Computed example of a mutant assay.
Amino acid sequence: MTEALAPPPGSHRGVWEAVGVTTQADIFESHRPRLFGLAYRMLGSAEEAEDTVQDAFLRWSAADREDVERPGAWLAKVVTNLCLTRLTSARARREVYPGPWLPEPVVTSDGTLGPLESAEQRDAVSFALLVLLERLTPAERAVYVLREAFAYGHREIAEVLDLGEANCRQLYRRAVRRLAADDTRFQAEPERLAWLLESFLAAARDGDLAGLEKLLATDVTWWGDGGGKVSSARRPIEGREKVLRFLAGGFRGFLAHVGLTVEEVNGAAALVARDGDRVVGVVAIEVRDGLVARLRSVVNPDKLAFVERQLGRC
């Protein structure tokens, strides 16, 4: 579990001034990274997370500072409830989304989503988990994120959501059961993942189908998210032979026109494709028994704007 969204000990103006935080903007900025991490985990969208945090800032600016005893808790409640409102409309949009929906990729080596020092912390922001979180109701997702990612107790979660503590415990148990029922999430040692990515890239560039075949599990699946704006498979491609045919065709042609690097995206090594300064794709893989079992490719340009800005600052 990662750090909780909490202010320094105490509550009122004197405490914040004692640590050098003297304006409303200063207080908010001290919480912004954690608020962004909360919103992203709730929404799976970096752009929407940024908008949500900005909306929270406007509410914070209009609030009576003397009435806010615990700024961190107050802001977490505002952001969570803004996310719950957004999730209601997001679920409707994703039901008619053209092709597979995948989260917006985020470079995590710069600490954008907080410290990811353990396998559990990295898994908590992985594409695989964020896709699974879409199966939860908004309330289940909020309880799960606050509990697992920010170490909130059930009493604190109840205060954030204006629900009973027993109800929050039930929502959390239900979320854990629903996520545990999926057995398709895999983890690999970072060194093995990096080696597979490099080997996969080299074989794909060279058209080495025999080499690619050795890297792929027999039941490998490819998901492509083009959002209806860029050509991409509208359905998951399942099975080694079908994935190999896809890689031998359009994907190899795509590789011929872009530059590729390996970056840490959503807590794990991933391929990032650039056309000049423009990011045109991110491919994340999951490994099972030493082989590539899942590939998730985001080529929807709307979902690449945030990661492009991140890499442009590097």
Rank of each mutant, 00 (worst) to 15 (best):
M1L: 08
T2E: 07
T2W: 01
G10T: 05
S11D: 04
R13T: 10
G14A: 09
V19P: 03
G20A: 01
I27K: 10
S30F: 03
H31V: 02
R32Q: 12
R32W: 10
R34T: 13
L35R: 05
Y40C: 01
A46C: 09
E47C: 04
D51M: 13
T52N: 06
T52D: 00
T52R: 06
T52S: 09
Q54I: 11
A56V: 11
L58Y: 14
R59F: 02
R59H: 14
A62S: 15
E66C: 00
D67K: 15
D67N: 07
W74A: 13
A76C: 05
V78G: 04
N81W: 03
L82Y: 03
T85C: 00
T85V: 11
R86M: 02
E95Q: 14
P98L: 05
G99V: 07
P100C: 04
E104R: 01
E104Y: 03
V106M: 05
T108P: 10
S109A: 15
S109Y: 03
G111S: 08
Q121R: 14
A124K: 02
L132W: 00
L133Q: 12
A142I: 02
A142M: 05
A142D: 10
V143K: 04
V145D: 06
E148A: 10
L161M: 03
L161R: 04
D162T: 11
L163F: 11
L163C: 06
N167I: 08
C168Y: 05
L171W: 06
R174M: 00
A175S: 10
V176D: 08
L179A: 06
D182F: 06
F186Y: 15
R192S: 04
L193Q: 15
L196R: 09
S199F: 04
D206S: 13
G207F: 03
L209M: 10
L212A: 09
L212C: 08
E213D: 14
T218I: 03
G224D: 09
D225P: 08
E241W: 07
F246H: 15
G250E: 10
F254Y: 12
F254C: 04
L255C: 02
A256P: 00
H257D: 12
G259I: 01
L260C: 11
L260V: 15
T261C: 08
T261F: 00
T261H: 08
V262E: 00
A270C: 05
V272E: 09
D277Q: 01
D277H: 11
G281R: 04
V283D: 05
A284C: 03
I285D: 09
I285N: 13
R288A: 12
R294P: 00
N300H: 14
K303Y: 11
L304I: 11
E308N: 08
Q310L: 06
Q310S: 11
L311E: 02
G312P: 09
R313C: 00
R313F: 01
R313I: 02
